[in-house]
Each structure stands twice: as C-alpha cells, then as structure tokens.
Design a binder for these strands. Sequence first.
DNA 1: GAGTGGTCTAGACCACCGC
DNA 2: CGGTGGTCTAGACCACTCA
Lengths: 248, 248
Amino acid sequence: MGTTQLESVPEPKYWHLKTVIGEALDTDFAVGEILPNERDLAARFGVARATLRQALEQLELEGRLQRRRGVGTTVAPPRVGVDVSTTQHQWPGTAEDNWRAQDCATADVPAAVARLLDLDPAAAAPVHTVRRIRLTHGQPVAAEQLYVPASSVPALPAIEAPSGPARARAVLRELQRLTLEGQDRAVELGSARADDARELDRLPGSPVLVVTTRYLSAGRTAAVSLGTYRADTCRLTFGDAGDLQIAS
Amino acid sequence: MGTTQLESVPEPKYWHLKTVIGEALDTDFAVGEILPNERDLAARFGVARATLRQALEQLELEGRLQRRRGVGTTVAPPRVGVDVSTTQHQWPGTAEDNWRAQDCATADVPAAVARLLDLDPAAAAPVHTVRRIRLTHGQPVAAEQLYVPASSVPALPAIEAPSGPARARAVLRELQRLTLEGQDRAVELGSARADDARELDRLPGSPVLVVTTRYLSAGRTAAVSLGTYRADTCRLTFGDAGDLQIAS
DNA sequence: GAGTGGTCTAGACCACCGC
DNA sequence: CGGTGGTCTAGACCACTCA
C-alpha cells in the first residue's frame, strides 16, 4: 500500500478494516444511514464474514455503529452525556430526574451487596429492591437495582401494595426523609445480565458501564444502588461535562 | 435439563459456558491459577474453540480472567479501585499521585480536543502534550495524554530540554501555578489505540475506560486530559469508594 | 418469505513466551 | 523448540424483523 512504514509488524486485518470503515463513516455516511449487509461488506473487502464482524464489533463498542438483528447496521449518533454527579447530594427518586420507577420486591440480595450494606449474612434481613429505568430522549439508557434495607425505612406502611410501581415510589419517598450525608460511587465495565439487557433493548452480554453507589446516612450505609448503563450509547458525566466528547 | 423453565428461548452455548466456567472459577480455582488451554477446554465442553473463546472473552471483559499470548489463561485478581475523584480540586502532577511523567512533545492535537480547548482551528496554536503513566502496585493501569495550550503556561522557559520527562514535569509545574477553578469529567468505553495498548501491556483494541477531563482556570479551559484506563483491571472510584465492588 | 445480524463449526496458520 | 493465545477462513444454521 501507500504506507511509508515498513510492514515489519503487520497489523491484523480486522484492525485495518476497522480503521478504513471508521474513516468511511466520517466522510461517506450520515447518522442513521444503513450500511451494506455483512456478507456484502465482507466480499467487498475480500475477507471472511467473521473477520468483518470483528471490525464491526469494535466500532459498535466505540459507539460508532448500531447493529440490530433482522434490521441491519446503522451509523450511530454521538453518545449522549448522562449526568451521574455525586455532588448534588440527593437521594434517588427526588423530583423529576428522568428515572421511571418500575417495581419493588423483596428479592434476594447478592452477597456482594449484602456486604456493602453491613448485613448479617446469616440473618437474612429483609431488603426492599427497587427497580428503575432511566430514560434519555425517550430511550432507555440505564437499568437500576436499588437495595434498601427495611431498617432504613422503618416507617414504610406495610399495608401498601406489596409490589409494583406504587410500592417502589413509596420506598423512594421514605428514603428521602433521611438525611443524606454522602455518596460513594464506582464505575466499571461489565456485561449485561439477561434482565437488564431486555430492558435496555440489547442482547445479553452487551458491554455496560456498571455504576455502584453507596448512600450514607447516620453514619451507616442506608442504601446501595447498582446502575447498568448502555456502554455503546452513554457517556457518563461528572460535573458540567455535557459537551465533553469521545476519543478512542 | 433440570430447569423448571420451558426452553422456549434456548440461550446461546457461549452464554451457558460463561456461566458454568464463571461458577467454576469461584469454587475450584484460586487467583493466579492457570486454566487448561483453550483447545483442551473446548474439547472438554464439546464445543468449537471459537465458541469457547467467546465465553472466555466475556469473562475477561468482566475482569475475571487474564489471557496472555504464549503463556495461558489465569484467574484474575479482583479489580483495583482507582480514585478519579473530581472533588480534590488539584492540578495533575501535584505531589506524589502515582503518575509517572513520560514525555512532552508538541504533537498535533485531535480536532475534538482542539474544540474543547477553544482553539482557533485555523491558527494551529502551539500546545504542549504531556504523556503520563499511572501505576498501581507497580502495574500500569492508565496512560494519559494531557493537552496544555502554550498560552496557559506563558512562563514556561523555552530553553529547557525540548522533550523528555524533565520537560513534562516542567509543564506540570507551571500549570500548578494557576488557580484551578473546577474540573469537568466524563467516562466512556473505548478501545485502546496502539500506543496506549503497548504501555498498558495489552493488545490494541482492548477495552478501556476513557476519562476526559477539562481543567478550568480564569474562566477558560486551561488544559484537557485524555486518560485511558484498563477496563479489565480497573474500577474507577469517586469518593471513598475503594471497597465498592463488582457485579455483572 | 426474504433478508438481516447472531451463533457455531472444524479446521489452518501466525505471533509470542519460556525452556 | 513446543505450547500458548490471536487471527482468519468458508462454510452452515438459527432468530429476528418487516413487507
């Protein structure tokens, strides 16, 4: 090719493909436009479909493509900034914050979460598990599981509907009566569990950004939340970083 | 099988494999232990190697496995928490903060970064680019490219070594003389560029968490940093979240 | 039913590591 | 040098969407 570099370390085909297609996306395609199908693309580049797919997978990982089974591959819009600041010292569910309460149950608590909540592993203390979906521009971008020990919301009326959105909102309401002293937050890469994937309109195993939050009140952990954000479409922002953008 | 659920939606083999192997990791293996090689494992589970690899890839993505060409697949230690709080209002390079200044050049600035810096795209204003590596327990966990417009550090002696670690430290030193008014930060998923991959001891294209930071001083953007964190080994923490842990 | 992306196979060769 | 994971091929079938 026209490279000035000695090909002493030949880069993998899929890597080169990714670069070529990535550049084509910038110049020849508009957001939302449909690419040729994988078989055609593979033939056009003279590679096996598996190799072509490896390149597309990376581009999808970087948020540049969107692939949907039965439909096709489209050029993705820029990632949306989703604010997850810890500075605004607020309980979840306060005011209108783009979350939609889905449900509330008393499901089992993962051991790792139980440890964060300082629960006695043997006691099997009751914990409310609130399920919420975060929407941006009408699209679901995150699913959250919020764990609230019953001891954190002692005044919660037991009579209320035992489950459903109303119950979830009741738990959030009770939580907001406590004094929030701080939040600790962590972000890491994960893959979507089956239930999260369904609500985020993705396939199981899709890459997600897992946001773990610990809510502190009265010197103890009053609640723990496990947020699952679509890694392909989301950019998590802290502070007024709504216009910070990508680079990969 | 013994499932109570109708197998109306059969899960993919690799997904099932991932679950089985993941459970085996918890019970039968210790951190650092070497797994059987891929050909043996595939044969043992009665699947093609490509399918087995798909399962291993996911487990690696979740930080549970570590694979090295020529060596083998080992059980990964838990992810290390890396603090990236924005609250401690500090310039980069202040005191001992686990970063090692590598180099400083006057390389070209990506268009996206130039926009963040409010640079005139036509003017080609000079920008110092500082390269740093972040170490944790002696292991590199992040590579950073810091863009500092020359106008932000006017007093930087032009006479000093034009490149190298000393130059990098000089730029950081000058930066610290400014009043830091705030930082905006964003986190998103990316794939490692070739140079980042080399310094992080990963293959190009490995998943990384890209942390974009904008440093504000005197009402303008004084510097922009692009941090690339290993997604397999890192958990980014905000606040005292060092002991928050995984779930995926 | 036609066309898409998702899964899976059974091979092959290559790049890298450590002995 | 042998053994490891990484790349690549050329097929096949399946699950899904939409006209």
